[in-house]
Design a protein around this nucleic acid. Structure first.
Length: 476
RNA sequence: GGCGCAGUAGCCAAGCGGUAAGGCAAUGGUCUGCAACACCAGUACGCACCGGUUCAAAUCCGGUCUGCGCCUCCA
């Protein structure tokens, strides 16, 4: 399995630090609002990485945090006149709902920054002791960037470029820094802000220390994979490396994975510009499985453009898989070519050969995933399997054969976290009666009445399809 | 100013030295009372442009143009 490592900027063969186990930390959202579709990309992408790792037999310890103390949360709390914890808790709950709809598996642990302050104080203390940090007169603690000689190794920047090329490092209020490149570990509270006691001042943690601490606590000093959006490479992840490696004297993460951005109409989605959609917005128009399918339809390191047309195309593509599975279920119910219990039935020789041939799609899928999680290619393998299934399964097929192909589609889809089998619903009697009446009308060639009924049901969101095997229906 | 990424059919998107996967849309056909689904068929003499290396290049090298990102909170 190959993973593109931001550290080396090359694809590297994945070798976990401990055989059979993978420790993974993914930077989570700051919970000051509903998550937007950009937040959804890393969630979906790295959830898919995790699923594949588990499929390969690894025991994955997957940690992703909620940042629940931050300027934006405090601002929102002030606007609403509530404690910032109220805001944080509310949006953590909402985020969990969205993740569920996206079929993102819950992490092994979902730590919150506010519950890990003790660990942060410890690490800051260690950094000061080792000479990597210092407290300014007002109680702000800064990390001494130049004391960590490998600073810049992730983002491939060197300190002099940073300093020389930067526009306005010396912004107001930062004149206490010994060096403009130093960054905050702990800062004093302002009036009305949440705070914690510390040896330096009453205050709260800086932006980067929480991830170093939570990763250490739940995964250890050294981990296999650290992931997040590409915008986090600098300064967030660079600073995490500096903090963790300076404090622990060990290599922090072996592999660094970063997803590219999701843009809106070819422009970067920006909270300040207001051109962004929440996952909830999209959920009102589409099944969120379509969003997941859309996200996985491109490689995670390529920028992905979002638009209404593209979502519509993704919906049609996703439906192709769903329709195929629905057809298989229909045949599984109605085929009477053999014994009722499918597990008892036998495949014909021809079917056995076809089932064998279908395994090549699994191979193609795996090869795509092994190559730095090429989900676009992996999904194309699912489509080829669907086509193969559609052309090889008939009313005469044995249930064993149908089930074999269906399970294969389900298995590959599930590795992508895509739910393609919809639960069977029971229609109410009135609808059932209408469908029967329409069947009678069709038999008598009263197509006017038949079409009228079809229109009626369509208004109720039920689409009827007359297939060779009989009438099928689905939700609009 | 410094650093970096990308340009493949109408659209999306794989491929990254061996002769262009897959999907969406559109077209013609089979099936069907019609529609939908499904299937079949054709669909990029060419991968932004110009040079170069090679028996062979979308794939490597150099240059040009265009779009985008990071350097500041941001997934």
């Amino acid at each position: 399995m190959k993973i593109f490592n931001t550290l080396s900027k090359t694809k590297e063969e994945f070798e976990p630090r401990e055989a059979g186990k993978v420790s993974m930390y993914v930077c989570g959202p700051t919970v000051y609002n509903l998550i937007h579709i950009g937040n959804a990309r890393p969630m979906v992408v790295f959830d898919t990485v995790r699923r594949y790792m588990e499929y390969k037999g690894y025991q994955v310890n997957y940690v992703t945090n909620f940042t629940d103390v931050d300027d934006k949360i405090i601002k929102k709390a002030k606007e609403e006149g509530v404690e910032s914890s109220v805001i944080a808790e509310r949006y953590i709950e909402e985020c969990r709902k969205d993740m569920k709809a996206l079929n993102v598996k819950p992490a092994t642990v979902h730590p919150k920054a506010t519950e890990e302050i003790g660990g942060m104080l410890d690490m800051i203390h260690t950094l000061i002791e080792k000479g990597h940090a210092y407290a300014a007169p007002d109680g702000t603690v800064y990390f001494k960037t130049r004391s960590f000689k490998e600073y810049g190794k992730l983002s491939h920047k060197n300190l002099d470029d940073l300093q020389g090329g930067n526009r306005s490092l010396l912004v107001s209020g930062e004149d206490q820094k010994e060096d403009p490149l130093d960054f905050v570990l702990w800062k004093p509270k302002k009036e009305g802000e949440p705070y914690w006691e510390s040896p330096w001042c009453k205050g709260r943690p800086g932006w980067h220390i929480e991830c170093s601490v939570m990763s250490k606590k739940y995964l250890g000093d050294e981990i296999d994979i650290h992931a997040g959006g590409e915008d986090l490479i600098f300064p967030h992840h660079e600073n995490e490396i500096a903090q963790s490696e300076a404090a622990n004297d060990k290599v922090f993460a072996k592999y660094w994975m970063h997803n590219a951005f999701l843009n809106i109409d070819n422009r970067k989605m920006s909270k300040s510009d207001g051109n962004f959609f929440t996952v909830r917005d999209i959920g009102e128009k589409y099944d969120l499985q379509v969003l997941r399918f859309f996200i996985l339809s491109a490689h995670y390191r390529s920028p992905l453009n979002f638009s209404a047309d593209l979502m519509k195309a993704a919906e049609n593509g996703y439906d192709r898989i769903v329709t195929s599975v629905a057809n298989l279920n229909y045949l599984l119910q109605t085929n009477e070519s053999d014994a009722p219990d499918s597990s008892e039935t036998q495949m014909t020789q021809q079917e056995t050969a076809a089932a064998e041939e279908a395994k090549r799609f699994v191979v193609k899928f795996e090869e795509a995933m092994e190559d730095d999680f090429n989900t676009a290619d992996a999904i194309s393998a699912i489509f080829e399997l669907v086509k193969f299934t559609n052309t090889n399964v008939t009313e005469q097929s044995s249930k064993a054969f149908i089930k074999t192909l269906k399970d294969e589609i389900l298995m590959l889809s599930d590795l992508c976290g895509l739910i393609v089998e919809k639960e069977a619903e029971i229609l109410d009697d009135e609808v059932e009666a209408l469908i029967l009446e329409r069947q009678e009308a069709r038999k008598e060639k009263n197509f006017a009445r038949a079409d009228e009924i079809r229109g009626l049901l369509l208004e109720q969101g039920i689409i009827l399809e007359d297939t060779r095997e009989g009438v099928k229906w689905k939700r609009a």
